[in-house]
């Protein structure tokens, strides 16, 4: 349903993506793995329309041309939401305000209330810290809030940029369990971008391997996990 063809992005003279093709099907979990600087974050920013794409790039979502939508409408009209690298919470706002801000363009107040209950159900810690400034949360709580906030803004497709970064293993498991729950119960499709390749491939159904701005491999995650090349380059032998 989200289809990207020949995606090219440059930052000034630096070519970050050289024309890559991929898709995200409804309700699926798909991952992109790759080393630092491969272009993973840039890929997500391109879908979210935070960076300009070059001539020849085609991106469609449910038949609509993604390039017709400015960044805020990708979220509010199409329901494609993005948890950015480093979480990027509004540290001067409370937990509740962060969640409310994400519903800025929504008018379906009944559903907003239900979604909020849903997120507090999945992340009870956030409910406890409702009125606390988000800048004072622990790393794990911040990641939970970043995910909950994204869900509140648009619930169809969630793009996640390195959610495991900086989290202790146990917290990481909590976060990924919650993601699975959101995916299964709400039908939210997830595109996960990770340097932690093993984690990403275990969690997803399909995967892409990104190297220096080119997709070099794709397939079922289970197959990629067993691929000798992938094992050598990304799974520590």
């Amino acid at each position: 349903m989200l289809k990207v063809e020949n995606l090219k992005v440059s930052y000034g003279n630096i070519k970050a993506l050289h024309g890559i093709d991929f898709r995200i099907d409804s309700g699926e979990i798909v991952c992109i793995i790759g080393a630092n600087g491969a272009g993973k974050s840039t890929t997500l920013r391109a879908i979210s329309r935070l960076v300009k794409v070059e001539e020849g790039t085609r991106m469609t979502y449910d038949g609509k041309n993604l390039l017709d939508f400015p960044a805020d409408q990708v979220v509010s009209e199409l329901g494609i939401t993005h948890v950015p690298e480093g979480r990027r919470l509004f540290g001067n706002l409370t937990v509740m305000e962060n969640l409310k801000l994400a519903t800025f363009a929504r008018k379906d107040n009944d559903q907003i209330g239900k979604d909020l209950e849903r997120m507090f159900g999945i992340f009870p810690r956030l409910k406890e810290r409702e009125n606390q400034k988000s800048g004072t949360l622990s790393g794990g709580e911040q990641q939970m809030l970043a995910i909950a906030r994204a869900f509140m803004s648009g619930r169809k497709v969630m793009l996640l940029d390195e959610p495991s970064m900086g989290l202790a293993p146990l917290l990481m498991m909590n976060v990924f369990d919650a993601l699975k729950e959101i995916n299964q119960q709400e039908g939210t499709a997830i595109m996960l971008v990770e340097q932690n390749a093993r984690l990403a491939l275990q969690f997803s159904a399909r995967g892409y391997v990104l190297e220096n701005g080119n997709l070099v491999l794709e397939g079922k995650s289970a197959d990629l996990l067993n691929d000798p090349e992938v094992q050598k380059a990304y799974l520590g032998g």
Partner: peptide, 16 residues
């Protein structure tokens, strides 16, 4: 207030 903190990710909240 949010924009004063970090304007880059403001559109990701669906905020124009």
């Amino acid at each position: 207030r949010a924009m004063a903190f970090d304007y880059v990710v403001i559109p990701l909240m669906g905020v124009p």
